[in-house]
């Protein structure tokens, strides 16, 4: 298998479709495999990898049902702790935003709308960085990697999610963070409807607690 990315928790492999699913067909699949950790005892290691693999599968499917484009799940192997899913081809939004002439309001708003759809479905993504968003050639936005996601309908969890987005934007896209966040929050409010302000307000509070990085709060308004 061709290693695509090695994270702290899992490895991603890119494979031809037919190698994995034994059917004719073009395209490629991504295999996400949660690797065993030698530092912890087997009982804990297996329990964690098993519950997280099945949770992530559920989150990806439920997100799709909520109107957020996510990779199609082809197979789940709870013995090998693998998820076989659709390979979403295209640049990460991280790369798109690095273009100095970037000013795609609609994309920014759609990011906010996607987050609102997740939140309304009771899901928080848990890792809203622009590396986990992919823009396909056809201009479709995908959210990938729900490895840190959970079902949590609380204002606090949603606030953390928005805060993570802001932090991620600040660390990589400090020049356009104001623009991107403003439009994303506009999309979020539009899609979430009543209660969106409470979540945004909470994100602001979380930032003020000093738990996280930045001190400026003007971007929230």
């Amino acid at each position: 298998m061709m290693l695509m990315k090695k994270g702290a928790e899992a490895s991603l492999y890119l494979e031809p479709f037919e190698n994995v699913l034994h059917t004719a067909g073009g395209g490629k699949v991504v295999i996400k495999e949660r690797i065993p950790k030698e530092y912890r005892i087997k009982e804990i290691d297996e329990k964690l990898r098993l519950s997280r693999t099945s949770l992530e599968t559920k989150l990806i499917s439920d997100a799709k049902r909520a109107g957020v484009k996510t990779p199609a799940i082809y197979a789940v192997d709870l013995g090998k702790m693998r998820i076989v899913m659709e390979f979403i081809d295209g640049p990460q939004v991280k790369k798109v935003l690095k273009n100095p002439r970037f000013k795609d309001k609609k994309l920014c708003m759609l990011i906010g709308k996607y987050i609102a759809r997740l939140h309304k479905a009771g899901i928080v993504h848990g890792d809203l960085t622009t590396s986990n968003m992919i823009l396909t050639e056809r201009g479709e936005l995908y959210f990938v990697d729900f490895g840190l996601g959970e079902y949590n309908p609380s204002v606090e969890a949603r606030g953390v999610d928005l805060h993570l987005l802001k932090r991620a934007l600040q660390s990589v896209h400090f020049k356009i963070v104001d623009f991107v966040l403003r439009e994303a929050l506009r999309g979020y409010e539009e899609e979430f409807g009543a209660g969106a302000r409470d979540v945004i307000k909470r994100a602001e509070d979380i930032e003020k607690r000093g738990r996280y990085v930045a001190k400026e709060d003007r971007i929230w308004h």
Binding site: G7, A8, E9, K37, Y39, R40, I41, I44, L48
Partner: peptide
């Protein structure tokens, strides 16, 4: 010990990878 320490090490590993 095993449960608490596994959690501590996991978060440390994530920070290290990040």
């Amino acid at each position: 010990q095993e449960t608490a320490f596994a959690a501590l090490v996991e978060v440390t590993e994530r920070a290290l990878a990040h």
